[in-house]
Design a protein around this nucleic acid. Structure first.
Lengths: 186, 186
DNA sequence: GTCTATAAACCGATAGAC
DNA sequence: GTCTATCGGTTTATAGAC
């Protein structure tokens, strides 16, 4: 048996990192394959060895996040009390938003991706599951809107300069407090 | 003296309404002048009689909102207590977001506009004034992040399908409650 | 004020050499 | 795997007739 394959810094990984950065900064539509290629130090045609279309690049860039989201909801479903489920969802989403804040904002706000994912049912399914988990059998409109506001607010807040002044622990704590306030049942 | 000029439905107003709708749906970058012209029932070249560049159209579309935002902050500055200032800001922003929810989301989230406005100082100035007004002399990081989350969350929530089930009064009330929770000092 | 026609640049995508 | 060269289509923007 040969040694476990070391994680090579293949061209593919480099491309995804560059693409994500540009997607987050300029939006997907405004990011050309030429721009990605230039930033990655290859030619535009070189991208087409790895990917057949631009959409394929977009989906591959966001794939880790598209997988991470349902995983959070699944973990939260295992808890017995509502407060534990809420904290698991909030903590999981905050973790994702902080660790991949570029991707999270793109995922939640980019109109190109919204349209791309609207053809699939995965994102919609995740949202339905998550709202059902948080709202339970008594769907309070206030909490529903609070959840919408948290998701969208988290996407915006995670890349706001106000976060730069805080260390990682304080960021998590502040965002968690925001979520708890929005989802609190009185 | 002639009669006061009636508000003619001139081509210009029609263009702005069409453009805003497309900007909100597809993003500014993905909205071509051809698309605006088609939807407005004119030719692409016809747009250039009214506007010299695409950016000029974009700024004119968002001008009402760019004027409305500082007006809210100025009104809020007149109040003596913090709670009154907070409610004035929240109520004003909610009013704008609900009445012009397409424009508000574009203003806060579209990367094309973000870049366009980053060259000017007006948006930045408004944000600094508003945060200073809400935070006061003791800038609590928690409240600062709550404000960031409210602004971004409001943009997303104002065009969420969850709002469709509520009447106008309930929408205002729910969003106001969200803002009060996020900005509450304990 | 609105049109047709067109310029110049850029877009995503493909063919084929090395 | 990466390159050069190119295709067809679309973009912003302009020129000029009516």
């Amino acid at each position: 048996m040969s040694a476990a394959p070391r994680r090579r810094r293949t061209g593919r990984d480099q491309l995804l990192a560059v693409a994500l950065e540009l997607f987050a900064r300029d939006g997907i539509q405004a990011t050309s394959l030429q721009g990605i290629a230039d930033e990655a130090g290859v030619t535009k045609a070189g991208l087409y060895y790895h990917y057949k279309t631009k959409d394929e690049i977009v989906l591959d860039v966001l794939k880790p996040l598209l997988d991470a989201l349902p995983a959070v909801t699944r973990r939260a479903e295992a808890h017995r009390t509502r407060i534990a489920r809420v904290d698991e969802v909030l903590g999981g989403l905050i973790e994702i938003a902080l660790y991949e804040h570029s991707g999270f904002a793109v995922l939640m706000q980019d109109p190109y991706l919204t349209r791309l994912l609207s053809e699939q049912a995965s994102m919609r399914q995740w949202w339905d599951d998550t709202t059902a988990l948080i709202l339970g059998s008594d769907p309070d409109p206030q909490i529903r809107i609070g959840l919408v506001m948290f998701i969208n607010g988290l996407a915006g807040a995670s890349r706001d300069p106000a976060m730069a002044h805080l260390d990682d622990r304080d960021r998590r704590q502040s965002l968690l407090e925001c979520g708890r306030r929005l989802l609190r049942q009185d």
